[in-house]
């Protein structure tokens, strides 16, 4: 009998509190969660349920008030900011709701940016960026700036940017919120393809129950706690 594979991401009793004046808001209330490599997972729930807070903690851009977060077996709590930033740049890709592309850079330059930030070779970064853009179907838009692209195309660029660094996990917070239903379905389908083709773990949040049909696993958050954690059949 083989030993069970350790989880890619492990959250243990994660709490996140925000202080607004004298009021304390507890956005996450003791979340414990294991996410394994290669999963295609959706976090869903109503507004204010703590989805974005959970994604920020999973993406290591926010820290829990208490509890622990492990990525690839490493506890991230003790990491200094520079180490955490380096860790993030190698392990995590991000897709944002508003695409968050740098407007003065072309699609290709946007995609190669995280590679260059990581200190990679310029020629190699350019080649990887081209490959990533071809993978997401934007071979003809490499030199277009974001303002010349549609919303769906911009989100494809963002997905290419997230995948270019060959991350262990892609965190996508509401990647379809600014898109129409047709583009939303296409983006989720694209993420699914990439998940299958490259084995990269995808975690995304959504309001749209129609998109949940594509996922392996869906976690329902309600009032900062996991209300349901279901494997799709």
């Amino acid at each position: 009998m083989s030993a069970p594979t350790p989880p890619l991401l492990r959250l243990h009793d994660v709490h996140r509190r925000f202080h607004l004046g004298e009021t304390t808001i507890e956005a996450l209330k003791g979340i414990s969660l294991d996410i394994h490599s290669g999963e295609f997972l959706a976090v869903w729930g109503p507004s204010g349920s703590g989805k974005s807070t959970l994604m920020n903690i999973l993406g290591l851009i926010d820290a829990p008030s208490s509890g622990s977060v492990q990525l690839d077996g490493r506890d991230t709590h003790a990491m200094a900011d520079d180490e955490l930033t380096g860790f993030r740049s190698h392990k995590i890709g991000f897709v944002f709701q508003s695409f968050n592309l740098v407007p003065v850079l072309s699609a290709k330059e946007n995609v190669q940016l995280p590679l260059q930030i990581r200190g990679g070779d310029l020629i190699e970064a350019a080649a990887l960026a081209e490959r990533a853009l071809i993978d997401v179907g934007l071979a003809d838009f490499m030199h277009s700036r974001p303002d010349k692209l549609s919303g769906g195309q911009r989100q494809r660029v963002a997905i290419a940017r997230a995948l270019a660094v060959a991350p262990r996990v892609v965190i996508a917070d509401e990647p379809t919120a600014n898109l129409d239903s047709e583009n939303s379905a296409m983006i989720v389908e694209l993420m699914r393809e990439m998940n299958r083709a490259k084995g990269v773990t995808f975690i995304f949040t959504t309001h749209d129950p129609r998109l949940l049909a594509h996922v392996d696993r869906k976690i329902l958050l309600r009032d900062g706690a996991i209300a349901a954690d279901e494997e799709s059949v």
Binding site: I61, D81, D82, T85, G86, F94, S98, L113, P114, I117
Partner: peptide, 16 residues
């Protein structure tokens, strides 16, 4: 500010 947040998220250090 949002661009700075993005750059930080994708790996740019504070000193960067």
């Amino acid at each position: 500010t949002r661009e700075i947040g993005t750059l930080r998220a994708i790996g740019l250090k504070r000193s960067g």
